[in-house]
Design a protein around this nucleic acid. Structure first.
Lengths: 347, 347
DNA sequence: CTGAAAGCGCTAACAC
DNA sequence: GTGTTAGCGCTTTCAG
């Protein structure tokens, strides 16, 4: 009961392995009649292609590698979902690695992926990756590399990120539209790019509507509930209290939500609130938390599309061409998710 | 700049491919000296093994396939996390497929996995899988098949599930321990096994503590917030109101939580509440929701362990042996996560 | 302890 | 339109 091979089929139909192979792969130079016959025989014998042999010979695995910090984080789970979905529909499969935010695992993952001759790699870089050598290695091997969310421009790879500035702008604008006018912001550590971008989006939106940007209304917190609580409390103690808060992360927004309620303010009546990230808990807190969605699934789909583009270019014989053009950078528009916490006006 | 192969190394050190291969694989019949020399040369030439070739020849890929409904569901993301973690530390990689709850995709996934000659498959069966032929095919091909969470006993495969009965029992017991005595239950459709199991655990716990099992205190809802709200409302309208509720899913627990608060009851003072599933939102609602954790990551780890066992057996030459013993079934103990909603007593 | 030979199952030139 | 030939890069008997 050994495995059925194309030799077996060839014997069965009095043909040869190469003809069988071509027929099964719908090669144009095989007559319709033979194709049909061979395919019937294959079905009959319960033939199943050996992709290892095929890949080894053809140099193409139809497998792409994914490296993410952890599949246990909702955001990345959703991105993987998006990638897998469109990858499969294009005949590609997914080899999944987690870096656990560790450079070491990331290096290991890249190494294994390269050994497996994957056709491409889609990655989101770990927080503590000390150097990028392993990724440069990928590029040197001419394996398409696509980055998403946790991007490094130095790698000069196609990438997809969400527009943090714009998301913050939209959130702030929404609050303004709801009639709030003293809008505070709970930001995060400024050396992290996204937090700075979101702060800028916030400030610019205020300016665009001729509202003052008041330093007293900007808090720099950490990414935790407690920090959100604290920041909210301090904001409500300022002489001229805010009537709304835009928090740079949902988790601090939640902390703020709790404290604001505790202090006896009506939400969204007296104080409006919006977060960023659209976490899985956001719809379920009370009042439900408005937020900015980063479209993770879409991010995955676009990443795969970028991989496909890279493949096409490669096939085009442009392999040797100097990298004249900058790599494609897709900047996704975030989407506003309006729930109770920010909706002062009746709909 | 073609790929470096063991031939290149052999040439470099005046040896042969077979010796190089053995040295690189730490084969016992190679002297330490040669090993060292060959490894040095390999490093020097920047050699990277071609796993395709290796797998094709050896018949072992060190890849296992995973089939889950969707990586966008927190539970499955966590399971995958667990599997990948221990798989990697044992030298295995993960090929990931989503069934999207669809039999068709599941079949496709199994087919591709088999074509790729994976060493094993770990799966959680899609809801609408009409027949199990594809999984029987896996078994026929002697590829180890492990099931988790969504299990089918007919497949007679090793599996890991969580003990629903016990989780419900523990939850109910916990409420009793907190001094609640009229404990209601919001269940789900009884044709779904887990809901029936949880109902039994609930009832048995009451009996064990000599509390009556009152039909008026059992609601059969759907898996939605709204259903939870409705069930809670009806429970609070019964002549002799409950002083605590155990909900079979966190999402109905949340609906109950909202309605109970709305009706003006103190929680956990007047009404205690506990859910099941420990969803990602549960820590963040107010009051934070006690729940029963299903240990998804652990489930993944155990699943992989089961795969390893199956491999060991296979290697043992027991291939032909009749399946005398029933397949291992690991039943994980759920863990109680006590938060505010159920904690009446001071700690 | 090392090497020679064979081949895993497939595809891709090239002939016919 | 079909068949022949030659490997992809590796591991694995089996000789020596």
């Amino acid at each position: 009961m050994a495995r059925v091979t194309i030799h077996d089929i060839a014997r069965e139909v009095n043909s040869t392995p190469s003809t069988v192979s071509k027929a099964l792969n719908d090669h144009p130079s095989i007559s319709a009649a033979t194709k049909e016959m061979i395919k019937a025989a294959a079905l009959n014998l319960n033939y199943r292609q050996n992709r290892l042999a095929s890949s080894l010979r053809s140099g193409k695995t139809n497998i792409i590698g994914i490296i993410i910090p952890s599949s246990d984080i909702g955001f990345f789970g959703a991105v993987v979902h998006g990638i897998e979905k469109v990858a499969r529909s294009n005949g590609y499969n997914i080899l999944l690695f987690q870096s656990h935010e560790t450079g070491e695992y990331e290096v290991e993952g890249v190494e294994t992926l390269l050994q497996t001759s994957v056709d491409g790699i889609i990655a989101s870089i770990a927080k503590d990756t000390p150097n990028l050598d392993h990724f440069y290695d990928v590029k040197k091997r001419k394996v398409p590399l696509i980055l998403f969310d946790r991007v490094k421009d130095e790698l000069e790879s196609p990438s997809v990120v969400v527009d943090d500035y714009r998301g913050a702008y939209m959130a702030t604008e929404h609050l303004i539209g709801q009639g709030y006018s003293r809008i505070a912001h709970i930001s995060g550590p400024q050396h992290v790019k996204i937090f700075n971008d979101r702060l800028c989006g916030y400030a610019d939106a205020l300016r665009a509507y001729n509202l003052p940007v008041d330093d007293d209304l900007i808090q720099y917190g950490k990414t935790s509930i407690e920090s959100g609580q604290l920041c909210a409390e301090q904001l409500m103690q300022t002489p001229r209290k805010p009537d709304a808060i835009f928090a740079a992360v949902d988790i601090t927004a939640l902390g703020a939500l709790q404290r604001i309620k505790q202090l006896g303010y009506q939400m969204p009546g007296q104080v409006g609130l919006i977060g960023f990230g659209n976490e899985s808990f956001s719809p379920y807190v009370t009042p439900s938390l408005s937020s900015v969605d980063q479209q993770p699934a879409r991010m995955g789909e676009e990443s795969f599309q970028l991989f496909l583009n890279a493949m096409a270019k490669k096939g085009n014989g442009q392999i040797v061409e100097e990298e004249t053009e900058a790599p494609t950078k897709i900047i996704l528009d975030p989407v506003l998710v309006i729930r109770e916490s920010s909706q002062r006006k009746h709909v």
